[in-house]
Every structure is written in C-alpha cells, then in structure tokens.
C-alpha cells in the first residue's frame, strides 16, 4: 500500500514538474546551442534502431511475398 502511495506521488511529480527530475544536465536548456545539439543527436540516434528494424523487416517481408508468388506461379503452370 505504501509502495503504491509513494509510487503515485513520484509519478505525479514526474508528470507535473518534469524539470525537477531531468537526468541530463547538458540538454536541460534548449535555448543553448549545445542543448539543441544534444537534443537533435539523441532524437536522430533514437530513431535509427526503428528505421533499421523497419528496413530489415520490410525487406524480409518483401522477399517472402515475392518467393511465395513465384512458387504459386510455378505450381499453377
């Protein structure tokens, strides 16, 4: 019960006052150029794993579909 209470309090603090719990001192102030630099870099690198998974997954899916169609065509002829 106590865990749920303090967990809820902590979550509210995080949601209401996010600047109090910022972990990274470098990207705290986005008005500073270095903050903007870190911010752009983090977003870019964060997007990359999703891009890679989408590319590899898309490629595998495309090749399986193409092979399946070719097999069907060979079977019908």
């Amino acid at each position: 019960m106590r865990f749920i209470f303090w967990g809820t309090v902590l979550m509210l603090v995080v949601l209401i006052a996010p600047t109090c719990v910022e972990a990274c001192p470098a990207c705290k102030d986005l008005k500073e150029p270095i903050g903007r630099g870190f911010n752009s870099s983090i977003f870019f690198m964060m997007a990359m794993p999703f891009t890679i998974v989408a590319l590899i997954g898309g490629s595998v899916f495309y090749h399986y579909r193409r092979a399946s169609k070719n097999r069907d065509r060979m079977g019908s002829s």
């Binding site: 630099g37 870190f38 870099s41």
Partner: peptide, 10 residues
C-alpha cells in the same frame, strides 16, 4: 553522425 550533430549545432 550523432556526434557530428552535437558539435555542429553546439
């Protein structure tokens, strides 16, 4: 490229 962005925009 991420490192470059930090230096370029920083």
């Amino acid at each position: 490229i991420g490192a470059f962005l930090v230096f370029r925009m920083g």
